[in-house]
Design a protein around this nucleic acid. Structure first.
Lengths: 253, 253
DNA sequence: AAGTGGTCTAGACCACAGT
DNA sequence: CTGTGGTCTAGACCACTTG
């Protein structure tokens, strides 16, 4: 027999399946093309549907596939490069910072946020919802937490629409001088509301970017932005003042 | 009946389960404590083991749990903050850049890397394996790709050990002047060899940090570092020259 | 040897998108 | 309506760690 290896470490079926599918995607399919349905694929490879799904899940996690309930599985385009530098996650409200305000409420922050804000845990914060769109698709949903004490002169709380309220808070925030910021990236799973905004199912993998904004010697605002992990590649262009020539990869608007 | 909502949108069982478990972890368990085994937990909640596992998988993805085959499921400590700024991912080989060389081979790069390097696709590259340890645990495995043309004066290719060869390449690289760099973060799944080094199973979720180093007007080296997504929070401290006072969270060494 | 998590099966039903 | 992916079940066996 042509035993190249003695199968001393038998590879899981779904892992091997993933490799086979991955190669097929490279050679036999083009972006946007729809794959056979899961039941057919499972039969074709002689495995149970659950096993086939385990392979598809991984490929989707890696941004190779896109699955939509009721529609089918399609070959995903290469990940979108989304800039997350100091320019794009700038002092919120600055002349185009890539974000669009949705609404704003005044409420008690979640415990984790209160922790980061280092404020009195009972202090209310303005919570601004914003969204970020790239290439016509929503790529991120953000919650911006701004303690009342950061925008003390905010007058018209009784602004008609929630969107106008959001803009008022950001405009007021601009009066502070930004002294520095702090960023962290980690893996998370989409909460129900974020999932809806990102057009994904709850629990979908997301990259959570937490930014702290410092002004007047303290934490003046905290942004928690959740990016679709399947379609986004976060780029940080902190080159030492040099212009970088980019390849054919797509960049964020 | 106390029907708060008419179940018009019945939440999946595993999602509800995840919420319940998450709250239990907060209130009834402490870090390092081991949970009941999966069969018992499933029985206790009246669901199939597969369903219970779906909830556990999500919690592990979020860094709340740690599961080890043959051992059990334990409550994970909060994620480790790992600095990924320009200091830690500096010009490789500089006086402590947080990485430790393992070995080095001279080979043709993967297609994706050749693409980023923008070099002749057949040119051989030095491939240096490095690893990064934080708090006694391996947190990242890196592959550093350095085209031969970046270190033309490299003499002793026939160095005895692979580790010494790695050091020789990095020392030679230091002679170039770094002009800038470029970073991207995306979600991936661990290859078999990375998984082994990170003490995880193949396919485990990882954060892939791709860094391009520019010198002499071109891409002189490319680093592909894979961080454990379950235990790591990548931090970018690009504050505007200000010292940031950190909370009780743990930072990387 | 016993107990754990990891893989796999062959079914079933549900929610959703496009007729 | 039909067809798709998403959820769920009740089992089975395997790979691994520990006593």
């Amino acid at each position: 027999m042509g035993t190249t290896q003695l199968e001393s470490v038998p590879e899981p079926k779904y892992w091997h399946l993933k490799t086979v599918l991955s190669e097929a995607l490279d050679s036999e399919f083009s972006v946007g093309e729809i794959l056979p349905n899961e039941r057919d694929l499972a039969a074709r490879f002689g495995v149970a549907r659950a096993t086939l799904r385990q392979a598809l899940e991984q490929l989707e996690l890696e941004g190779r596939l896109q699955r939509r309930r009721g529609v089918g599985t399609t070959v995903a385009p290469p990940r979108v490069g989304v800039a997350v530098g100091t320019e794009q996650h700038a002092w919120p409200g600055a002349a185009e910072d890539a974000w669009q305000s949705v609404d704003c409420v005044l409420a008690a922050p979640p415990a984790a946020v209160a922790d980061v804000l280092e404020t009195a845990s009972e202090e209310l914060v303005h919570t601004v919802r914003r969204s970020r769109v790239s290439h016509g698709q929503p790529v991120a949903a953000e919650l911006l937490y701004i303690p009342e004490s950061s925008v003390p002169d905010l007058s018209a709380i009784d602004t008609p629409s929630a969107t106008a309220r959001a803009r008022a808070v950001l405009r007021e925030l601009q009066r502070l001088e930004l002294e520095g910021q702090d960023r962290a990236v980690e893996l998370g799973s989409a909460r129900a509301d974020d999932a809806k905004e990102l057009d994904r199912l709850p629990g979908a993998p997301v990259l959570v970017v937490t930014t702290r904004f410092f002004a007047e010697g303290r934490t003046a605002a905290v942004s928690v932005a959740t990016y679709r992990a399947d379609t986004c590649r976060l780029t940080f262009a902190d080159s030492g003042g040099v212009e970088i020539h980019h390849g054919p990869e797509r960049q964020a608007s």
